[in-house]
Design a protein around this nucleic acid. Structure first.
Length: 472
RNA sequence: GCGUAGGUGGCAGAGCGGUCAAUUGCAUCAGACUGUAAAUCUGACGCCCUAUGGGCUACGGGGGUUCAAAUCCCUCCCUACGCACCA
């Protein structure tokens, strides 16, 4: 690979989709340049904070993962910082208690599904990837709560004899035993031990160096204050805890060179720099990436707004969702979600402005390119054919889900049982609106009591399809 | 701790004893028009039923007054604002 190509690649690395890149000393960029030339031997550590409660990954997250992948390709190591401790505190229901064994297994299970998905984008071998949870340093022994009556065993030596003693798990000693078994784990350096412990004392020491005005600078806080909304102390401390994570990471991995996240994380990531400086660590660089808007074209893509395209969405769904994007999102999606070269995207942008092409055709290309990334060429082509057949020509989608039912079953019940409709009331509503039809003949279902007596594909609204197969 | 104003459907926000399953806006869903785009128009929008009717559950939690409560009273929880306190 010639150094020319590498240079343009590196330019793109630092610009495409990047809202802000903060590296005042230029150290990080220099390291990357040296790494690219093979002159830098040490690990370059890139931190990314993940929420362990949401294992569903969508295209918005993928923007960041794809960027991380580029860094991996240059030889950097990506570390996922799993915010399991902070997630617990932020849990507004306040229900979750710290239950070490169960919760450890949960985090591990979630991480597994997470990594299965992320593996489509990121390298997950030991040299390129690692993950660590922040409950490892934030959990205190006394935070542990165990079911009443639980016992833990501990062996002691008395006069040369070993004896097992049962302790009440909720006693201090009991908790300490559990802590040792579940919290202290093999660290990156191989030994088994508490990696680092953040005590109240050390937290207060950190807070002593951070002012209130520094914390409320954050836009989100300002808005809340202005609009008279409540702002809780623990929310204000979030950035601090996140910053401590960066510091601890640099202790564990030797350094923490870059933190990457969406623009909504910029402030938090910058607090990380402050805290690293306080602790005389090399300050991380910060890269914030543009947030991808959701399928509504307005709000950022998120699960809670239900405007997301999951990377595990079936090819047909993924294709369809991309086609239903507003035209105004096309260029952004090309930039953030595809590998299309930037010159080409520029051209597309110009064509769109000059009405040279039908935006639909460009969107089809977009949809296809994105589906290729997550499902491969064949599936993408199939999805495209399916889209044309179903929506442009008004046919029936391929590979419909088939539901077998006994002859004479009420259609409403079938749809309800299969969660195509939410309630009986919705079913009746849809029927009276003429939204339910036989997808083959186009005949509308006119009666609530309609029962099926033969195989038929059913269409509900624009995009809900179901094939009913009658059992003999 | 004291005082004042509040807590209503996914969100915002009316209602302040019966006609309230709750005006309105946003979001959502459906129909028309389309490119499964946008815009626009129309309608729906708690749940269940043997359904131009009946029932159940809901206006922060619990209790009470009343034939009747989102609406009145008591109590608890939570929020904002002011006062007091302030290592």
């Amino acid at each position: 690979m010639s150094s020319d190509i590498k240079n343009s690649e590196i330019d793109e690395l630092f610009s495409r989709g990047v809202e802000e890149f903060i590296d005042p000393e230029g150290k990080f960029k220099e390291k990357i340049l040296r790494k690219a030339k093979g002159e830098y031997e040490e690990d370059i550590i890139i931190k990314f904070g993940v929420d362990p409660t949401r294992p569903d990954i969508h295209l918005g997250h993928a923007v960041i993962f794809r960027k991380l992948r580029k860094f991996q390709d240059l030889g950097c190591k990506v570390v996922f910082l799993v915010g399991d401790y902070t997630a617990q505190i932020g849990d507004p229901t306040g229900r979750s208690k710290i239950r070490p064994e169960i919760e450890q297994k949960e985090v591990e299970a979630n991480m597994k599904t997470y990594l299965d998905q992320v593996g489509k984008i990121l390298l997950t071998d030991k040299n390129s990837f690692s993950w660590i949870r922040n409950s490892d340093w934030f959990t205190a022994i006394t935070d542990i709560e165990l079911p009443k009556g639980d016992k833990v065993k501990m062996s002691i030596e008395k006069e040369g004899k070993k004896t097992d003693i049962d302790f009440d798990a909720n006693s201090f000693v009991g908790k300490a035993v559990v802590f040792e078994k579940t919290r202290m784990q093999p660290t990156i350096t191989g030994f088994r031990g508490a990696i680092s412990v953040i005590t109240l004392k050390s937290l207060l020491w950190t807070l002593k160096h951070i002012t209130h005005s520094r914390l409320i600078e954050r836009d989100m806080f300002q808005e809340r204050i202005k609009s008279g909304k409540e702002l809780f102390m623990h929310e204000m401390l979030y950035p601090v805890l996140q910053g401590i994570d960066s510091f601890v990471l640099s202790e564990i991995y030797g350094n923490c060179d870059l933190e990457i996240g969406g623009t909504d994380q910029t402030f938090n990531m910058l607090i990380g720099r402050d805290i690293m400086k306080l602790n005389k660590k090399e300050q991380q660089a910060v890269m914030s990436l543009k947030l991808l808007e959701g399928t509504d074209g307005k709000e950022k893509m998120s699960k809670s707004l239900d405007n997301y395209i999951a990377i595990t969405d079936a090819p047909n769904d993924m294709y369809g969702k991309i086609m239903s994007l507003p035209d105004t999102s096309i260029v952004n999606y090309f930039n953030l979600c595809t590998y299309a070269p930037q010159e080409e995207i520029k051209k597309i942008e110009n064509d769109l402005k000059k009405d040279k092409t039908n935006p639909k055709d460009i969107k089809m290309r977009l949809a296809r390119e994105i589906v290729v990334i997550y499902h491969g060429e064949d599936k993408a082509e199939q999805a495209e054919r399916n889209f044309i057949g179903t929506f442009q020509k008004g046919g029936i989608p391929e590979g419909l889900e088939e539901i077998a039912v006994p002859k004479g079953t009420n259609l409403g019940k079938i749809l309800l049982d299969n969660k195509v409709v939410k309630s009986n009331a919705e079913w009746r509503r849809l029927v009276s609106e003429g939204a339910v039809s036989n997808a083959e003949t186009g005949d509308k279902i006119g009666s609530f009591d309609f029962s099926v007596d033969g195989n038929m594909p059913i269409k509900v609204g624009k995009r809900r399809f179901l094939k009913i197969v009658v059992e003999e």
